[in-house]
Amino acid sequence: MLITIARFTYPYEAQIAWSKLDALGVPAYIADEHTINMQWLYSNALGGVRLQVREEDEQAALLALAEDLETELMQQEGFDTDLCPVCDSPNTEFYQFGKRWAFLIFLGLDFPLFPVKEGIQCRDCGAKSKIDGSK
Rank of each mutant, 00 (worst) to 15 (best):
L107A: 03
D68N: 15
V49K: 05
P85C: 04
A23D: 14
T71R: 10
P11E: 03
S43L: 10
Y12S: 05
R7I: 03
L104H: 10
I5Q: 04
V86H: 15
K128P: 00
Y42I: 04
V53I: 07
E56H: 13
A64R: 04
L113H: 02
I120F: 13
Q59S: 08
L24N: 12
F114I: 14
N91H: 08
Q75N: 12
L46Q: 01
E77P: 00
P112Y: 07
K130A: 11
L51I: 03
F8Q: 01
S19C: 01
Q121L: 12
Q76T: 08
G48C: 09
V49C: 05
Q76D: 04
C125E: 08
Y10K: 12
A45Y: 05
A28K: 14
A28F: 08
W101G: 09
I3M: 09
R7P: 00
R123A: 08
L21E: 01
D57Q: 09
I131N: 07
P27D: 06
T35Y: 10
L83D: 11
E13I: 00
Y12P: 00
E55S: 08
Q59H: 03
G78W: 01
F8L: 07
E56F: 02
M1G: 15
A64M: 06
T4D: 11
V86D: 06
W18L: 12
S89K: 08
D124A: 15
A14N: 00
A31D: 09
E58C: 04
C84V: 06
T81V: 10
D57A: 02
D110W: 15
I30K: 08
F8W: 01
L65Q: 01
S129V: 09
C84L: 02
D82L: 15
C84Y: 01
K117G: 01
E70V: 13
L104S: 11
S19W: 13
F94C: 05
N44M: 01
H34A: 13
Y95K: 09
K99M: 11
A14S: 06
A31C: 02
P115N: 08
